[in-house]
């Protein structure tokens, strides 16, 4: 269900893009994937543009301190670890990682470290990027900002699990900010009424406590 909604959110993001450059975006939905499926999906990524790897780790084990995500075995009976270093070689140098899982910050050092692997410094990708963007803004240096990570929380935090909030609340904040903020507003106002269990939700609770401008 989350996967279906995620693809709907992304397709509504894509719908507004009518440029020829942006319409080359394609996306692929991998539900309960094995490592093989992920490798096949990342093989046909578009060179020179950003590839988005969106990991929804709800109900999976936590990512390990060794930098591993959890994917399924072929028979969808067990979880097996998938190292982030391998994943980075598959996805390519220009990538956006969205990690919507508890203790996602564990993976952050593995995603931002420099790999000495030659596949991450692909000259073809750099060249097509420079040729592809004909806008007034000059293309940035490809070594800089080329991997962008969105992580839901730091290494020792858990995502809120109260049933009144959507499980993929971080994804919602990124893709459909208007809708989720209205939803949160309604929930926060209705917390003033009794029988609402706001304390179940540490994220919103701390947000209300220290709501300082960034």
């Amino acid at each position: 269900m989350i996967g279906a909604r995620l693809s709907r959110q992304y397709s509504s993001l894509f719908k507004g893009m009518t440029n020829s450059e942006e319409s080359r975006h394609t996306f692929m939905l991998c539900l309960d994937p094995t490592a093989d499926i992920i490798r096949k999906a990342t093989r046909k990524n578009s060179r020179g543009f950003y590839s988005v790897f969106h990991y929804n780790g709800h109900g999976c084990p936590l990512p390990t301190a060794g930098g591993e995500l959890w994917v399924f075995t072929r028979s969808i009976s067990h979880y097996v670890p998938l190292a982030v270093r391998i994943l980075r070689q598959w996805v390519g140098p220009r990538a956006i990682y969205i990690l919507d899982c508890s203790s996602a910050g564990v993976l952050l050092p593995f995603l931002v470290e420099n790999l000495s692997d030659s596949s991450l410094n692909d000259p073809e990708a750099i060249g097509s990027e420079a040729g592809g963007s004909q806008q007034s803004t000059p293309p940035i240096a490809p070594s800089k900002f080329s991997t962008i990570v969105f992580a839901a929380c730091s290494r020792d935090e858990m995502l809120p699990m109260a049933p009144c909030y959507p499980a993929d609340i971080y994804t919602c904040c990124l893709t459909t900010p208007i809708q989720i903020s209205l939803q949160m507003f309604i929930l926060q106002v209705s917390k003033l009424t009794p029988h609402t269990d706001l304390l179940y939700c540490p994220f919103i609770y701390t947000y209300v406590l220290n709501s300082t401008p960034i």
Binding site: L13, F14, G16, M17, N19, E22, H25, F49, Y50, V52, I96, I98, S133, Q135, T137, P139, I140, K144, F145, I148, F150, L174, T175
Partner: peptide
């Protein structure tokens, strides 16, 4: 930074 995050890639900008 502004150019990179908000002007270069539409998908990245909307995220």
């Amino acid at each position: 930074m502004f150019r990179t995050y908000l002007r270069q890639d539409m998908l990245l900008a909307s995220l």
